[in-house]
């Protein structure tokens, strides 16, 4: 197999005595969409910044596109596009100027940038808006322009830090479609998210991080198959706890959270059957998803 696009070994980073990245290893292969999942504060953004050579690791080795990082990070970034967590579009410029100026940072010729702008605007759904000021764009448009800006140098790898956080469903779906077409073109994507649905749709492989460590690695299907029962029945309503005690022997695993019983089962038949005789209880029967894995592995406690 050819060399991985990104390889990370023994990576550590400490801030004010706290280990934010506590020894992680992973490899991203060409053409895959690789996800870094984790609750707030798990170390996802720090990992991305370390891989881009924007901050100094305390220990570990990183190679990005065949170059050691941070030593040759600048050269590696020549072939990388970055979508940061918070848009940092240049507010002093129009849509078009943002793309022009950003292309110059890659040392691109003016004529090459100009030639690329129409297709970038088209891709971002911003054709006809090239003269618009940044302040007049909606959140979704800004995000799409950030995506277009990250593609100005036709990168081989795109880093995306929570690309759809804060967007409405329409805007989010549009970004997802664009990311899928980037995958089709053979670009490698590295994305952080805490949208489990996003990871499930886009990522070929992912890691789940918590407290700076990788606690699971695999494809979304593999992770679901390995860590969780295939069926979930969520039950609430008067007397749900009594019901839960009654079905516990046939139910597999039952977790009670507040006013809801989450029943994780290999065989859902007896559970659903027992609910037919309990008209007071409200239930939802669904297949297990990545969110169930995530909550099982990282717990239900709030992270701020």
């Amino acid at each position: 197999m050819s060399e991985a696009v990104l390889s990370v070994a023994g990576l550590r980073k400490r801030y004010a005595g706290e280990e934010v990245v506590a020894g992680i290893d992973f490899e991203v292969q060409a053409g895959e969409c690789f996800g870094l999942l984790g609750p707030n504060g798990a170390g996802k953004t720090t990992t991305l910044k370390l891989c881009l050579g924007l901050i100094e690791p305390d220990a570990g080795e990183i190679r990005l596109l065949g170059r050691p990082v941070p030593a040759a990070a600048r050269e590696a970034r020549q072939r990388v596009g970055v979508i940061p967590q918070f848009d940092n579009l240049d507010p002093d410029f129009s849509v078009r100027e943002n793309l022009q100026v950003y292309g110059r940072y890659f040392g691109m010729k003016r004529s090459d940038i100009e030639a690329r702008i129409p297709q970038l605007l088209e891709f971002a759904g911003l054709s006809g808006r090239e003269g618009a000021k940044i302040q007049t764009l909606s959140g979704g448009m800004k995000r799409r322009l950030t995506l277009a800006r990250a593609l100005v140098n036709d990168p081989e790898v795109v880093f995306l830090d929570e690309p759809t956080t804060g967007l409405d469903p329409q805007a989010r779906h549009l970004i997802w479609e664009r990311l899928k077409s980037l995958k089709q073109e053979g670009k490698t994507l590295l994305l952080t998210t805490h949208f489990l649905e996003e990871a499930e749709r886009l990522c070929s492989r992912l890691v789940i991080m918590d407290h700076g460590r990788i606690i699971a690695l695999g494809s979304p299907r593999e992770l679901i198959a390995k860590h969780i029962e295939p069926h979930v029945v969520e039950v609430h309503g008067p007397g749900f706890e009594t019901w839960a005690e009654k079905v516990r022997p046939q139910a597999g695993r039952i977790e009670i959270v507040g006013e809801t019983a989450f029943c994780y089962a290999r065989d859902e038949e007896p559970v659903v059957a027992s609910l037919k005789t309990e008209p007071e209880l409200i239930y939802l029967h669904r297949p297990a998803n990545l969110e169930d894995v995530f909550l099982k592995l990282t717990g239900r406690d709030l992270r701020d």
Partner: peptide
Amino acid sequence: QQKTWEGILNAPIL
């Protein structure tokens, strides 16, 4: 305020 430098530093600029 504008994080313009942050954007520039994501490009191959030191």
